[in-house]
């Protein structure tokens, strides 16, 4: 029973986080809030990726004095490597987005995206 709860909390939880992030991007007016929701979505996806690679009662993929040999059960290292990269990419994109927001703010002096209609056509 516990495993069922755990499964649903991780998979369900991360998908819910993606849902909240996506809804945030689609609905919020404030540009910084849109970027925050973008960040939430990234975190949600990263959580889901690592959760997909989790193995019950296995230990972290590091060979050290605690579990010296590779015979022991390990968690899947590849999703962790992918998530490592995707977190940094997410932050890079967010940082650039914030710089753009600051520049747009200088011009329109508002963070509300619906008031920025420069590109009508």
């Amino acid at each position: 029973m516990l495993n069922f709860l755990e499964e649903w909390s991780f998979f369900g939880g991360s998908i819910l986080l993606i849902f909240i992030g996506l809804y945030g991007v689609l609905s919020r007016k404030n540009m910084i809030k849109i970027l925050i929701s973008l960040g939430l979505m990234d975190t949600g996806v990263n959580l889901l990726l690592v959760a997909l690679g989790y193995v019950e009662a296995a230990n972290a993929p590091i060979i050290n004095s605690v579990n010296p040999s590779n015979a022991a059960a390990f968690v899947d290292p590849i999703p962790q490597a992918l998530v490592l990269t995707s977190i940094v990419i997410g932050t890079a994109v967010l940082a650039l987005g914030l710089a753009l927001v600051m520049k747009i703010y200088d011009k329109y002096s508002t963070l509300n995206i619906s008031e920025i209609r420069g590109l009508k056509w």
Partner: peptide
């Protein structure tokens, strides 16, 4: 989830720097 590397990255970059950048931008 037995992913210490990712935990450190998420903490340092995700929680630390991203929040700092957001606050600076704000």
């Amino acid at each position: 989830l037995k992913a210490p590397d990712v935990a450190m990255t998420e903490a340092a970059i995700g929680a630390g720097l991203t929040t700092a950048i957001f606050v600076l931008a704000l």
